[in-house]
Each structure stands twice: as structure tokens, then as C-alpha cells.
Nucleic acid binder design. Structure first.
Length: 544
RNA sequence: GCCCCGGUAGCUCAGUGGAUAGAGCGUCGGUUUCCUAAACCGUAGGUCGGAGGUUCAAGUCCUCUCCGGGGUACCA
């Protein structure tokens, strides 16, 4: 039982006994100041009005009714306007690290959602060019959210949705074709709105090498497009692979056409009277569903707009039996998904199961200037270049350390310059330090023991243990809110607690029982650091 | 016009309606006969964009407003 759960178990009956608890949830916060205890609740402040009494009197009444184990809780105080502050006994805290040492790599995991299936769709960039730093945020965040969900029991399928047909891809194929002709000496002009990137020329070069001038009469959509798609897609997968990201499914939009799912959705809309024809196009009655206005789902050219396959695609996710469906988009998709959700809802699907997580844009700053990202204009910094410069760990850490709702500034020069002094190294260093202690202890013949954990009583030791015990709560909280930056923030605080402990509390050379206990504490810290780093997809180095 | 996100220390950003608003980097100063100084300790730095309101309590919730970003297609 976590520390928080124990408090709930003793406090709820006490509050109930005052006959005041109805729908109020008892919250336990960790106060900023140690003098306010290990945990604090404001329940008396919230219920005072209902109880027609003042908060402090009510708090006293509740405290009097709390039955607790004095081995666990050392004291309960009322403070300020009516807070109830709980102090755990230091012996109980110290012995709690047993749970960490026993759980090992499972510490922090829970089975809260076991048996549930989740689908997390992310990256989903069409194969028109290399992944950029902008895609990096989506990729890393999506992968980490997936891991978080796995840690709380979900079975997670990572999915990549792509489209290798349509106008974009025609332009891509034609871009390669024109570069190919230019390489063969043609003075044909390269249109300004075609893909300007150098990778296009590279692909054209390899075609020249493979086929000579035999492709002069080929059209854009055949070999040129296919070659471009294959090369680009394998680059994308390689980049993701470097970051440790592997999708289980690559879902091709084309499948929806081949399997008749587009037609079938169209038929349903038509049968239900949800669509109509106007000016040669097919419109969906979104206004009736509470959205701003009706939107086109099939253009007058006969081509569907993106909404139609998106709807059909999400239907397949429901059909595939997912309990939780997560879509990770950049903020530029803000106005597209409400249409899809409204349509799905009207078809009887439970759209509560769909969570659309929008992340704000990454502003890349290079040489002191903002880089305006555009694949078409070849004005971008690729994700590969970023990984080359700062490494996998820094890249993953950086994209996970900010709330996704915040616009992120990514100063490349700074990231490079600070790579020796980066926050990720701070916590990796804590891990390496522990590994070093373990090596030295072995040499000195010191073995860890949990027989006298009660000797861990200094404020540095106690703070560290309390921080360690918090990990499962943080994981669950982060998973429920899909916030990976809660994990990076927590690990940062944990490393800080450890470094302080390390500075003040010597292990090897201390009195035997104390040394054994402190070594146990170091081992427990190593477990939590390693688990946290693993969850984020970062390495836990043994030496630095 | 309308919709979404942001505005908190010099910079980048945390901050469950709670007690004296925090961290990292940068400033300035200190710590090493001792398990890794990629560390630790201290210092300075704030009208939480602005104005109203709700509340015992507002950086946090509501209204209005200013600034920056994104969107508002028969593009995706």
C-alpha cells in the first residue's frame, strides 16, 4: 500500500464518522515545507461551510476520530487555517524501501488497466521527405506515452498511418523525374513548388546509376514515385530506429479503399441521410451534429477529402477492439479532428475512448535565427542531424521534458554547447555514481542488508526514501494525464535527493549496520532511476 | 471575425484552488587528505502580461483585454 493509500484508509472513516462526506474527495498533498509534514489534507477547509463550523474545529474533530498505527504515523497536526498535516514515523519510512528492493524492475508498474488494449497512433508522416526536428517531438512523445500506458497495464499497439497516393506523392515522383532528366543533361526547369530537398537529387542519382537513361519516357507516378517512397520510408524507419521507436503497424490509407471501407462508410452516411450532394460534391451534415458547418467528404473530382478516410480509419480502430485510442497530432490539426469525432459519434461509436493529444510546435533556432520548417522548401533541420549532434538520450529527454501544450524553443546551438551540462546527464550521473559505489563496496567486502534499515534517519536519507516511494504514484498520474514531463521532472528531483544523500551520508567506511543499510538505500535508488530511465527510453550508464 | 495553445526570475521552463511561487542554465561566492566535483552549499534575481470578478484561500477558476504561435479549404 502506498503512503497515500494508507492515509486515505485512516482518514476516510474519520471524516465519514463526522457524517459530512458526500461527494468530496479527500486529497492528500505533499506540502512544500517539511514542517508541514509528509502529507497534508485540506478536507476540513472544504467541508467547514457544510458543517457550519470553523475549519480548525472541524479539523480537530476529524483528527480526534482518526485511528492510526503509531508505528506508521508519528503525529498528526492541525495547522494554519485548518490543514491536517501527517507525519510518518522515520522507522516506517526507512523500512518501506523493502518494497522497492523486492519489486526491482517492476517497481512503478501497476496492473490498473491490465486486460485493456490501447492503440497509439503517432509520427504518421507521409513519405515525402526526411523526418524533421518538428516530427521529433511527435515521435518521442508518442513512444513515451505508449510506454507509460504499458507501465500501468495496457497492452499497447504503436501505429503509423500513412498515405502513399494523391497529389503530394505525384509531386514527389515528378520532382524526382525532373531531377533525373536534369542529371542526364536536360535543361528542363524545376518548378518552385516542387520538393527542393537534396535527397530528391540523391534519389535521382541512384536511378541514373541503376537504369542509365532508360527511364526518360517513364511517367512520374510509376518508378519515380515508387523509388522515392521506398528510399524515404526506409530512411524514416531508420531514424525512428535510432531513437528506439518501433511501430507495430504501418497502416496504409490505401487499405481503406482496397477493402471497400471508404465505400461502406459513404453508403452508411447516405442511408442515414447524413450526407447530401451539392455542386457535384458530397457533403456531410456536420452542422446538424453541432459543428460549425457542413464539410465536403467527396470532392467534385470524385476524390475524397482527408475526412472520409480518417473516419473510416478510426472505425477500423474500434473494430480492432481497442479500449483506448490515442491520436498524437501537431497543433495544426486542431480543427480537423472534431469533424471526425462528430461523424464517429453519430455512427454510434463511443468517442470517449478517443484521446486526441495535440502538441504545440517546436521552434528551431539555428545560428540565432528561427528556422521556418518546410519539407517542400527544404528548409528544415532533420531529426537525424539532431541525433547526430546531441545523441539519442538528449533528444529523447529534451522532447519529454516539456509539457506538450507549451510551445517549445529548440536552440540547436545551445543544445550542442550544453551537452556536457545537460539535465539528462545529471540523472544519468546519479545512476553511474551508484554503480561505482556498488563496485567499491564489493571490493571492500561490504554487503547490503535490510536488517537495520531503521538506522536511516537523517533528513537526507528520509527525503530520498520518500521520493523513491513516490515513483508509482507519479507513473500512474503521468499515464492518466498523458504527461511524460511529469516523469522527467520527478527523476530530476530524485537525482537531486540522491546527490545530496551522497554528499552528506558516506556509505563505505561508516559503522557496519549503517553502511549495510545505506547500501540498500543506494540499491533502491538505482532501481528507481533505472526504471525511470528505461520508461523514458534512455540509457542508464554504469560509468560516465 | 471565430476556435485552440502560450505569456511566471536575464534565458528555457515547472507549478493537483492552499501555507513564504520553484528548477535548470546564466551571475556572484564557497566546498575535494574521504565511495566519480558531470557533484554539493550559499548569493542575487518576480507588481505570475493587464483589469475586474468568484472563493476562507487565485499563477491556478470566470469575464473582458493586450501580445506571440497555430488553425479556420472541394490541402493533409
Amino acid at each position: 500500500m502506498s503512503l497515500r493509500n494508507y492515509l486515505f484508509s485512516i482518514t476516510e472513516p474519520a471524516v465519514l464518522s463526522t457524517s459530512l462526506l458526500e461527494d468530496e474527495n479527500i486529497q492528500f498533498d505533499i506540502p512544500q515545507q517539511n514542517s508541514f509534514g509528509d502529507f497534508s489534507t485540506n478536507i476540513a477547509l472544504l467541508l467547514a461551510k457544510k458543517a457550519k463550523t470553523n475549519p480548525r474545529q472541524l479539523a480537530q474533530k476529524i483528527v480526534d476520530a482518526i485511528k492510526y498505527d503509531e508505528q506508521i504515523i508519528s503525529k498528526i497536526e492541525i495547522a494554519g487555517p485548518g490543514f491536517i498535516n501527517f507525519f510518518y514515523s522515520s522507522g516506517f519510512i526507512a523500512n518501506s524501501i523493502l518494497s522497492i528492493l523486492e519489486a526491482k524492475s517492476n517497481f512503478g508498474k501497476s496492473d490498473k488497466y491490465s486486460g485493456k488494449k490501447a492503440n497509439v497512433e503517432f509520427v504518421s508522416a507521409n513519405p515525402t521527405g526526411p523526418l524533421t526536428v518538428g516530427h521529433g517531438r511527435n515521435s518521442v512523445f508518442g513512444d513515451t506515452v505508449s510506454s507509460l500506458l504499458e507501465w500501468v497495464g495496457y497492452s499497447v499497439d504503436r501505429e503509423y498511418y500513412f498515405n502513399n497516393a494523391g497529389r503530394q506523392m505525384r509531386v514527389l515522383g515528378d520532382s524526382v523525374r525532373i531531377r533525373y532528366l536534369q542529371l542526364l543533361g536536360s535543361d528542363i526547369e524545376f518548378p518552385a513548388d516542387y520538393y527542393q530537398g537534396e535527397y530528391i537529387t540523391d534519389i535521382a542519382k541512384s536511378l541514373v546509376e541503376e537504369h542509365g537513361d532508360k527511364l526518360k519516357e517513364e511517367n512520374a507516378e510509376g518508378l519515380f514515385k515508387d523509388k522515392a517512397e521506398n528510399v524515404i520510408f526506409s530512411d524514416i524507419k531508420e531514424t525512428l530506429g535510432r531513437l528506439g521507436i518501433r511501430h507495430k503497424h504501418f497502416y496504409n490509407e490505401n487499405t481503406l479503399y482496397e477493402e471497400g471501407k471508404i465505400k461502406s462508410v459513404l453508403n452508411i452516411f447516405s442511408e442515414k441521410g447524413m450526407s447530401y450532394e451539392k455542386e457535384g460534391a458530397t457533403w456531410l451534415k456536420l452542422a446538424e451534429l453541432g459543428n460549425d458547418q457542413d464539410k465536403v467528404i467527396v470532392k467534385s473530382t470524385g476524390e475524397p477529402t482527408y475526412r472520409l478516410p480518417d473516419i473510416a480509419y478510426h472505425i477500423t480502430k474500434f473494430e480492432r477492439g481497442y479500449d483506448l485510442i490515442i491520436d498524437i497530432f501537431g497543433s495544426d490539426h486542431k480543427d480537423t479532428y472534431p469533424d471526425v469525432l462528430a461523424a464517429l459519434k453519430s455512427l454510434g461509436y463511443n468517442t470517449e475512448a478517443i484521446k486526441v493529444l495535440l502538441h504545440q510546435f517546436v521552434t528551431v533556432i539555428k545560428d540565432g535565427e528561427v528556422v521556418k520548417m518546410s519539407t517542400r522548401k527544404a528548409n528544415y533541420v532533420t531529426l537525424d542531424e539532431l541525433v547526430d549532434e546531441v545523441g539519442v538520450d538528449v533528444t529523447r529527454y529534451f522532447f519529454n521534458m516539456r509539457s506538450v501544450s507549451s510551445h517549445m524553443n529548440f536552440d540547436l546551438d545551445l543544445a550542442k554547447k550544453q551537452s556536457d551540462d545537460n539535465p539528462v546527464f545529471y540523472l544519468q550521473y546519479a545512476h553511474a555514481r551508484i554503480c561505482s559505489i556498488i563496485r567499491n563496496a564489493k571490493e571492500a567486502g561490504l554487503e547490503s542488508s535490510t536488517d537495520s534499515l531503521i538506522t536511516l534517519s537523517t533528513s537526507e536519507e528520509q527525503s530520498l526514501i520518500k521520493k523513491l516511494l513516490l515513483f508509482p504514484d507519479i507513473v500512474l498520474f503521468a499515464a492518466n494525464s498523458f504527461e511524460t514531463h511529469k516523469i522527467t521532472g520527478y527523476l530530476q528531483e530524485l537525482a537531486e535527493c540522491f546527490h545530496r544523500f551522497y554528499t552528506v551520508c558516506r556509505i563505505i567506511g561508516s559503522e557496519q549496520k549503517l553502511a549495510e543499510s545505506r547500501l540498500s538505500l543506494a540499491l533502491a535508488t538505482q532501481i528507481v532511476l533505472q526504471n525511470g530511465l528505461t520508461l523514458l527510453g534512455l540509457s542508464a550508464p554504469e560509468r560516465m
